[in-house]
């Protein structure tokens, strides 16, 4: 599904990714762990299409297509979703209106009919139940005045509605208490299927108790230095990154 080959990228002239390779197959969940500044969030941003990076060499293919040639919105319409570490606020734009516009933009691209208000609301309500979300949140402005936990829940709610093929969860566990972590993880797991893949970026093994990965990679200094099964995460938790 996603194939990254020998990727090099710079931010403001500084090399962040230095020959990264990653293969994610359909239905697989990959966890990427690593110390601060290792390039985890950069990787997420590059896949999603943020343009404040300079890609110096390498290739990123998504279902065989060259991802680096696509605009962020085309990538989204092709089925790539990024759950942001810090979701932004958009004052005055109702959450529900935002999501409906997004879903219909994606559906239109995929040649599907747009959902009307009633069908959309039915879908949204069903997904909100999964995430135990306060109904009031969908009428409020996008992320405005949301608590940290509510913002993360809202990201996963959007993911559940958009049903992307590849989701990248960028530190979805940061700032969540234990209960919220469980609920958010449930939401994520409900989207898992044999066709949908995920890249879960985290610092902590704890999240992986809830979202059990097929593979774990250690990213350090712009490269994947070790890959393994879920047990690798436990090892990291015990030894720390320095000793791996």
């Amino acid at each position: 599904m996603l194939s990254i080959k020998n990727l090099y990228a710079k931010v403001d002239g500084k090399e962040i990714l230095k020959g990264l390779n990653l293969e994610v197959g359909p239905g697989e969940v990959h966890a990427i762990m690593g110390p601060n500044g290792s390039g985890k969030s950069t990787l997420a941003s590059i896949i999603a299409g943020r343009d404040n990076f300079e890609i110096t060499s390498g290739q990123v293919l998504f279902e065989g297509k060259d991802l680096l040639e696509m605009s962020p919105e085309v990538r989204a319409c092709e089925g790539i979703f990024l759950a942001f570490q810090y979701p932004v606020e958009i004052p005055g734009v109702a959450n529900i209106y935002f999501l409906k516009s997004a879903l219909n933009a994606v559906r239109k691209y995929q040649g599907l009919s747009e959902l009307d208000a009633i069908d959309f609301l039915t879908l949204a309500k069903e997904k909100m139940k999964l995430l135990d979300m306060d109904k009031k949140l969908i009428d409020r402005a996008v992320n405005q005045g949301f608590s940290g936990g509510e913002k993360k829940r809202n990201e996963i709610f959007q993911m559940a509605v958009l049903e992307p093929k590849l989701s990248i969860l960028d530190e979805i566990d940061s700032g969540l208490d234990i209960d919220a972590l469980r609920i958010v993880s449930q939401g994520v797991n409900s989207v898992r299927s044999a066709k949908r893949s995920m890249i879960v970026i985290t610092h902590y093994q704890r999240l992986l108790n809830y979202i059990v990965p097929d593979k774990v990679h250690v990213l350090s200094n712009g490269k994947i230095i070790r890959s393994g099964g879920k047990e690798l995460a436990f090892e990291l938790e015990q030894k720390g990154y320095a000793r791996v």
Partner: peptide, 14 residues
């Protein structure tokens, strides 16, 4: 902000 625009585009909006 660039962040707001990117957020919208990442969800599929032009």
């Amino acid at each position: 902000s660039e962040d707001q625009i990117f957020y919208c585009r990442q969800r599929g909006l032009s």
